[in-house]
Design a protein around this nucleic acid. Structure first.
Lengths: 216, 216, 216, 216
DNA sequence: GCCTAATCGAGACGGTACGTCTCGTCTTCAC
DNA sequence: GTGAAGACGAGACGTACCGTCTCGATTAGGC
């Protein structure tokens, strides 16, 4: 893909004359994010094109290709940027996890916040687009998990460990598996539209998970 | 896909002169399925093109457009056809669910079969492609759920109901939610590559789900 | 082109199982002529398709391919048929040439009739279409000349020979060349739209041709 | 072809954003001309396709569609370009008309040059193709006449006027009609293959035309 | 505060695939 | 066995985008 002219690249300089990030136009970056998110929301991911983003942002195509490697890449950064702006400091899921001492109540609260977010139409289309791309495109998928999901998962793990210390969760439980009982059913209902998403539903998940399906 | 319900449409809407299915070439249909699955497996979903499928199948493009409305549509039918062939009669997940009286053992067995299937490379790429498309394309997504997943889910529901009758699962549990504890974590690990998939993992899921995370 | 299966064709039967003309449907033939002429007149030659002719005539495509070899072929026969119907018996150009003893007057009269015909919109589009095809397609061109033009040219030759006998045209003139002075300028004006076509114009042609451009 | 007259169109009609001619690739233009002429010569006009021209020229299809509106348009420009190259300065027909004082000799000389050109196989197929298209396509026909024929016709008119001044052609003759006696019979013989084309033939045309068919 | 190199908007370019249209052949029924 | 109907393999149509490649015209940062 890179051209690699003569010996130059063999020495030290990167093959493709890496662009100078210090001179990058902030104006263009912002315009591209906005255009990308707007187009994805309006027309859907497949009908969103780099050419369309460039035109809408009032930007040359090369300015996009200079800084991003693909449509998915642009969109992911735009989405991350949006997420950062939306949760400037706190955000229950993003940065902290409540610990009132009652793990059931705490998890229910966080899941209710997640339900709210999944229902926010501003997030809906780009999130689905990214999730879909991540299913098929391994590299992007791993990036998505690492950047968007892992921080939240770590908070779950932390809270579950605390619950184990407090004796509210069995000590022989692996928190990395346990958290999936809260996250995965919700994720699948959302991704595959296999059922309604509500506070009642997530509350039920927590109760079933903690106390088990079998009679005691 | 074709409309033409009752006589109504024949009068009011000349539409596009729905093709005569009785004259359809079985040879072409088979060749298209084979080509589509092969190309998706070799090059991935986005690089699979209708033109490529037609060329590989030795078929005119119009023959594809005549019978399917999109690449996703072709692939879904091809995949359904493959699934049908693969499970000609039985297949534990597809048509029956074991009932040895021990619900834990039965669910573990079925999940182990699912693990095997998810690891079969023949299914890997087309399944991901379809799942991804279904995330973004609501219509296709619902079709996928209805045709590919629902039959299996119904079997889970049946088995859980039997377990309730036998007193192995609490009577106040909603089986439609309970089954997600088995299915969704596995699905998410596979779709989003958030963790390894093994018999050990699914066995653990069953144990955690049945007995709960909380100490008893 | 022909398929020539097995030895059959090597024996005596024509290679392509020549259709049995006695069973040919007169109804279809007429409908095809009508449809072809109508479509050419409405949409022009290039937009007229065999498929369109068949649909309009209420005829299967094969019925056209069985009896004609190309779009040009259909149209030529249709046009010939039209011409035959239009000049059932007489028709000044088609079958006889006036001989009043005054060659100038006679030729002028015939040319005026030709002017009338060239201006008839019923003939305009199909004639142009055929002429154009004949320019590029040698076989069709020769057929056109032979079937549509030669009869008229022969009449001119006859009339000019009579004029030579009567002393109105020089004996050393080749009538086959002389007639071009009347026909070709008119034809070119019409085909290439290089000038208006009128009685006055054709009258002038005759005068100039007979008496020469040089002063006498 | 491009519209964009004055500022008006820039406001009222965004049209199709006329391409920037200053950035046009000369290399592509030449390659397209060459490919177009070669293909027409090899395969004939109807079998020459834009796709084929693009492939042979090593050019994207859009590069053709960007600058030309149709196959006929490409071919006409290619042909005009060829003609320009062939007659870089002089060329008897194209730019000057001999005037030795003997109009008969001069016209015969020019017609002999025309005969040579009509027989040049390099010109044969594209010329026929364009002429045929011009018969059917009025816009192209008028362009062809204006760009390819009119300059020559004007030279004839000029020479005939001089002959009138010199008393070699009658003063009451309309040169625009008179020239057709030289041009049209030759054109028709060529276009419709109604007879052989030779120096002898064109010489005869000149003699007959100047001295008339009638005895003097 | 100028100079100059990189970034920018713009868009032409060689390509690929799209979804549609028509070709000429082949197959299926009805008559 | 002809004829209407139309599915088929083939391939061109004209369009939309791809990712690369020039073009001036800003537009900074280092001097």
């Amino acid at each position: 893909m890179a051209v690699q002219k003569s010996e130059q690249s063999a020495q030290s300089a990167p093959a493709k004359s890496a662009p100078d990030a210090t001179r990058r136009s902030e104006r263009s970056r912002r315009a591209i994010y906005d255009a990308a998110l707007a187009l994805v929301a309006e027309a859907g991911y497949p009908k969103t094109t780099i050419e369309g983003i460039a035109a809408r942002a009032g930007v040359g195509k090369q300015t996009i290709y200079r800084w991003w490697s693909s449509k998915a890449d642009v969109l992911m950064e735009a989405f991350l940027d949006l997420a950062e702006q939306s949760t400037p400091e706190a955000g229950p899921v993003a940065y902290t996890f409540p610990d009132t001492g009652d793990v059931a109540a705490d998890v229910k609260a966080v899941l209710r916040a997640t339900v709210d977010q999944l229902r926010d139409p501003r997030f809906e289309v780009p999130s689905r687009a990214l999730a879909a791309e991540g299913v098929v495109n391994e590299q992007l998928g791993r990036e998505l998990v690492a950047k968007l999901m892992q921080p939240s998962l770590d908070l779950y793990i932390g809270r579950l460990r605390a619950a184990q210390d407090a004796g509210q969760v069995r000590a022989d439980i692996d928190p990395r598996i346990a958290l999936e009982f809260f996250i995965s059913p919700l994720a699948q209902r959302w991704l595959q539209r296999t059922g309604p998403i509500s506070y009642e539903y997530t509350d039920t998940l927590v109760d079933y998970a903690l106390h088990g399906l079998a009679p005691r």
